[in-house]
Amino acid sequence: MIIKKPESKEEFEQIFKLNYETFVEEIPQHEARQDRKLIDQFHSKNNYLIAVKDEIVIGMVSYNTQRPFSLDKKKVEIDSLIPEGAKVVEIRLLVIDKKWRKTRVTFQILKKLFELVTAQDITLGFISAASGRLDFYKKIGFVPFGEMVGKQGAFYQPMYINESSLHNIFPK
């Protein structure tokens, strides 16, 4: 398995398929579509990392440093949590193919992500954590804040992680 940035149209098609399987079929956040693809509303400004095994995308995560973030669009107040001059990132769409969820894929993709963002001097990250996965995110250092957002069947908890928590999980 390798962790890398997507390079081909085929890899992006696989990302859209994984998003569909997760955020339409598993977590009913979006409506069903005949083409079985879900292209993220922030796709044009997302940076993606993918886990690839035998040319198949088995996991992915996206991140972006350009506001407005999805949390801003959901009317979640994040400005009071951002220290003056801090560089921030929103981490989104962590998806691991069901067959690979109880493996090291999640750890490896997050480790690479955190290496990339800390190399850019980013010191604070935000996520919207699926309500069923809060314990996982807390275990790796994310802190919940504010109220849950979303809709029935697809609630998300706004969370943040700071640089010191990142270094505790993924030491340099």
Rank of each mutant, 00 (worst) to 15 (best):
132 G>Q: 11
97 D>A: 15
121 D>H: 14
10 E>F: 01
113 L>G: 08
151 K>C: 05
22 T>N: 11
164 S>Y: 04
86 A>P: 01
21 E>C: 04
167 H>N: 13
17 K>W: 04
15 I>H: 04
22 T>D: 02
25 E>K: 11
141 G>P: 03
27 I>C: 05
42 F>H: 13
161 I>W: 02
147 E>C: 00
122 I>H: 06
83 P>V: 05
83 P>C: 03
104 R>P: 01
131 S>W: 06
167 H>S: 10
24 V>G: 04
112 K>H: 12
125 G>R: 02
76 V>L: 06
105 V>W: 06
170 F>S: 05
132 G>A: 09
33 R>A: 12
140 I>K: 03
73 K>W: 00
53 K>R: 14
73 K>V: 09
31 E>H: 05
115 E>I: 11
81 L>P: 02
13 E>P: 00
167 H>F: 10
113 L>Q: 11
134 L>I: 15
169 I>Y: 00
14 Q>F: 06
136 F>E: 05
41 Q>K: 14
80 S>M: 03
26 E>G: 00
150 G>N: 09
142 F>T: 01
95 V>P: 00
104 R>E: 12
43 H>S: 03
163 E>N: 07
66 Q>G: 00
21 E>N: 15
57 V>N: 08
131 S>G: 02
69 F>D: 04
120 Q>Y: 02
29 Q>S: 09
76 V>G: 06
2 I>T: 13
129 A>P: 05
25 E>T: 07
105 V>A: 14
24 V>R: 05
97 D>E: 14
129 A>D: 02
122 I>Q: 12
94 L>Y: 10
127 I>T: 12
124 L>A: 04
165 S>Y: 04
70 S>P: 00
36 R>T: 12
120 Q>F: 01
134 L>C: 11
116 L>P: 01
4 K>M: 08
50 I>M: 10
24 V>L: 03
118 T>K: 12
113 L>F: 07
41 Q>W: 00
28 P>Y: 03
100 W>H: 13
100 W>S: 10
150 G>A: 07
158 P>G: 05
39 I>W: 02
106 T>A: 15
57 V>S: 09
164 S>W: 04
55 E>S: 15
129 A>F: 07
78 I>G: 02
86 A>E: 12
136 F>D: 09
70 S>A: 12
121 D>S: 14
136 F>R: 06
127 I>K: 01
71 L>H: 03
69 F>N: 02
5 K>G: 01
88 V>M: 02
19 N>W: 00
9 K>L: 08
127 I>P: 02
122 I>M: 09
39 I>R: 15
37 K>R: 15
19 N>C: 12
34 Q>S: 14
96 I>E: 07
61 V>I: 15
109 I>Q: 06
103 T>R: 04
163 E>F: 13
48 Y>F: 15
56 I>M: 11
72 D>P: 07
162 N>F: 02
67 R>M: 13
20 Y>N: 09
40 D>R: 04
126 F>N: 03
158 P>I: 10
32 A>L: 08
36 R>E: 15
29 Q>K: 12
114 F>M: 11
162 N>K: 12
17 K>S: 11
62 S>M: 09
168 N>C: 10
160 Y>Q: 06
20 Y>L: 10
44 S>P: 00
99 K>S: 14
